[in-house]
Computed example of a mutant assay.
Amino acid sequence: MLQLEIVTPEKKIYSGPVHDVYLPGSEGEMGVLEMHAALVTSLVPGELRYTVDGKTEALAVGTGFAEVTQERVLVLTDMAAGEAEIDEAATEAAIERAQQQLDQLDHDHDLEEVAMLEAALAKSFAQLKLKGKYKGLQ
């Protein structure tokens, strides 16, 4: 069994033994099993999945890093939300606001603001994707 820890700036989201972990890495989805080679990888907004007691849990995560050892996966991310925590209407409204703000910016001169809005959009889309995937599976 692997020990998984998922931490955001606000709180520890999960800490416990898992069978496997699937991470949204910058180079694509990455699966981790016990005795995996040690590595550190960056994360992009997407779906993080792990299996506990035969049940797969999923979270929408933002950007961050994962440190993998043979016995442990430590995930440091700026956002982690389960399907039940995601407010679909609020997320869709946030996407619309961010897209409107992006449309008003000068993409050649407001590079930092453009990057910030694009990151917010990526996190929102990750949440909606997770919400849509698990809608009705209660």
Rank of each mutant, 00 (worst) to 15 (best):
40 V>C: 12
41 T>Y: 13
42 S>L: 11
42 S>N: 15
42 S>V: 12
43 L>E: 13
44 V>S: 12
45 P>Y: 02
45 P>G: 04
45 P>W: 04
45 P>S: 12
45 P>L: 08
46 G>F: 00
46 G>C: 05
46 G>S: 04
47 E>H: 08
48 L>Y: 01
48 L>M: 03
48 L>K: 02
48 L>W: 04
49 R>A: 13
49 R>S: 15
50 Y>V: 11
50 Y>Q: 02
50 Y>G: 05
51 T>F: 00
52 V>P: 11
53 D>I: 12
53 D>E: 09
54 G>W: 05
54 G>P: 13
54 G>L: 08
55 K>L: 13
55 K>H: 14
56 T>Y: 05
57 E>A: 11
58 A>Y: 02
59 L>V: 05
59 L>D: 02
60 A>V: 03
60 A>H: 03
60 A>L: 00
60 A>F: 02
61 V>R: 03
61 V>C: 04
61 V>Y: 00
62 G>F: 01
63 T>H: 11
64 G>R: 01
65 F>V: 07
66 A>Q: 09
66 A>W: 07
66 A>N: 10
67 E>N: 12
67 E>R: 05
67 E>S: 10
68 V>H: 01
68 V>S: 00
68 V>Q: 07
68 V>Y: 02
68 V>R: 01
70 Q>Y: 13
71 E>M: 13
71 E>V: 12
71 E>A: 13
72 R>M: 14
72 R>P: 03
73 V>K: 05
73 V>C: 04
73 V>T: 08
73 V>A: 00
75 V>E: 11
75 V>C: 06
76 L>Q: 12
77 T>Y: 00
77 T>C: 06
77 T>K: 05
78 D>I: 08
78 D>M: 04
79 M>H: 05
79 M>V: 01
79 M>Y: 03
79 M>L: 12
81 A>I: 04
81 A>Q: 07
82 G>D: 10
82 G>T: 08
83 E>S: 09
83 E>N: 11
83 E>Y: 09
83 E>D: 10
83 E>C: 01
83 E>Q: 13
84 A>L: 03
85 E>Y: 02
85 E>W: 01
85 E>G: 07
86 I>S: 03
86 I>H: 04
87 D>Y: 06
87 D>C: 08
88 E>R: 15
88 E>Q: 14
88 E>N: 11
89 A>R: 13
89 A>M: 11
90 A>N: 05
90 A>Y: 06
91 T>H: 08
91 T>C: 08
93 A>E: 04
93 A>D: 04
93 A>T: 13
93 A>M: 14
93 A>S: 03
94 A>V: 10
94 A>W: 02
94 A>C: 11
95 I>Y: 08
95 I>E: 04
95 I>F: 06
96 E>H: 13
96 E>V: 14
96 E>A: 14
97 R>W: 00
97 R>L: 08
98 A>I: 06
98 A>E: 05
98 A>S: 03
99 Q>W: 08
99 Q>F: 03
100 Q>L: 13
101 Q>E: 12
101 Q>G: 07
101 Q>P: 02
102 L>G: 04
102 L>Y: 00
102 L>W: 07
103 D>K: 11
103 D>C: 10
103 D>R: 13
103 D>V: 06
103 D>N: 13
103 D>M: 07
104 Q>E: 15
105 L>H: 02
105 L>S: 08
105 L>P: 01
106 D>C: 00
107 H>L: 13
107 H>C: 03
108 D>Y: 14
108 D>L: 15
108 D>N: 15
108 D>C: 07
109 H>T: 15
109 H>M: 14
109 H>G: 10
110 D>E: 14
110 D>P: 01
